[in-house]
């Protein structure tokens, strides 16, 4: 034996997952939703996604190399995930320069200013998205029509999202039964034939991605299930109380960013709680805030705000919600 023996503390064997694999797993799970989006929104969806990913990776590289002076870690895929998720929260006709500003805010403010991967308290993609929503409200809320906008980019034909129609209609006192006739049917909502952000339209594709993440054990079921269940129960109560002034739970879940948010955004590792109990509190909180904003707030959609607000509570949840310790209560059965 020519080489020296290696000595290290146990364990001496390791699981197959690493950060890179987890991140690329998330990207893989997002691809079906991207495919549906490209089908409905055409080149716009592709351009926005590509610009977003490239600028996020670029900014991460530049910041790590020249500002933080550390070894760039862009190959771990986390910047690509942020870029992809940012793009999924944008309309497909957004001009390139706005996307680049959004990416800078996402990576620069949302992620790197806190120390990079794992240290950010808020979901970077949502920080960027909310920044853009407040700074460029007109561009951020013009939604290209599905199919019709396939070959157009910034000059795409725009229309209202089902949530816009519902919110404005209810505010004007139009009964929900009549409004339901103006929005796409459930099947179209499920497949994704509606206006909206690039990634959020297709419930089918998002659920498919979510199942993949669960099977690969990249995420745990607690957060998506608690968010969706809370929203279903909350909107169900409102709908049951007054079906003419409130949309039904199925409509709520299929439209807007709820599935994208519940499966991909709220489950972001760094910004979600560590324990199962904490995940439940977090999920229920997101559900309640989302519905509150949707029904009573100024915006038709509240998922991004709800996730960011609950992100702020995560450190407190982690501090006070502890897992059940083995041997804590003596149970003799």
């Amino acid at each position: 034996m020519s080489k020296l023996l290696t000595v290290s503390p146990s364990p001496h064997t390791f699981g197959g997952d690493n950060v890179k694999k987890l991140m690329y797993g998330v990207i893989l799970a997002l691809l079906p939703a991207l495919a549906v989006s490209v089908y409905f929104f055409g080149i716009g969806a592709l351009v926005v996604t590509a610009v977003s990913i490239i600028s996020c990776i670029g900014f991460e590289y530049l910041i790590q190399k020249f500002l933080m002076k550390t070894e760039p870690t862009i190959s771990d895929g986390s910047a690509a995930v942020t870029g992809l998720l940012l793009a999924f929260n944008l309309p497909s006709n957004l001009p390139v320069w706005i996307i680049i500003i959004g990416a800078l805010v996402s990576i620069g403010v949302g992620k790197m200013s806190f120390g990079g991967l794992g240290n950010n308290p808020f979901n970077p993609a949502l920080v960027g998205r909310v920044f853009m929503l407040i700074s460029f409200p007109v561009q951020m809320t013009s939604w290209p029509e599905p199919v019709a906008a396939r070959t157009q980019y910034t000059d795409a034909v725009t229309g209202a999202t089902p949530l816009d129609v519902m919110k404005e209609g209810i505010a004007d006192g139009v009964p929900v039964s009549q409004l339901m006739g103006e929005v796409p049917g459930y099947l179209d909502l499920f497949i994704g034939r509606m206006g909206g952000c690039i990634g959020e339209i297709s419930a089918a594709a998002l659920i498919l991605g979510g199942i993949y993440l669960l099977v690969r054990k990249i995420i745990s079921w607690h957060i998506p299930v608690s968010i969706i269940a809370t929203i279903a129960v909350f909107t169900g109560i409102l709908w049951g109380a007054n079906p003419e002034a409130n949309a039904d739970p199925v409509f709520h879940i299929l439209t807007g960013g709820i599935l994208l948010g519940a499966i991909f955004m709220a489950t972001d590792y760094a910004t979600s709680p560590m324990t199962a109990k904490g995940m439940w509190i977090y999920g229920v909180g997101i559900g309640i805030i989302t519905v509150t904003i949707r029904v009573w707030g100024a915006y038709p959609e509240g998922m991004s705000f709800a996730i960011l607000i609950m992100n702020a509570f995560v450190p407190v949840i982690n501090k006070y919600v502890k897992p059940k310790r083995f041997g804590e209560e003596i149970k003799n059965g």
Partner: peptide, 22 residues
């Protein structure tokens, strides 16, 4: 002379608990 190669958390406190060192 080195007689082994240590690989673990790079802290003396941890290495000394593990073994006599490299």
């Amino acid at each position: 002379p080195k007689t082994s190669h240590y690989e673990g958390a790079s802290e003396c406190r941890i290495a000394t608990e593990l073994y006599r060192g490299e």
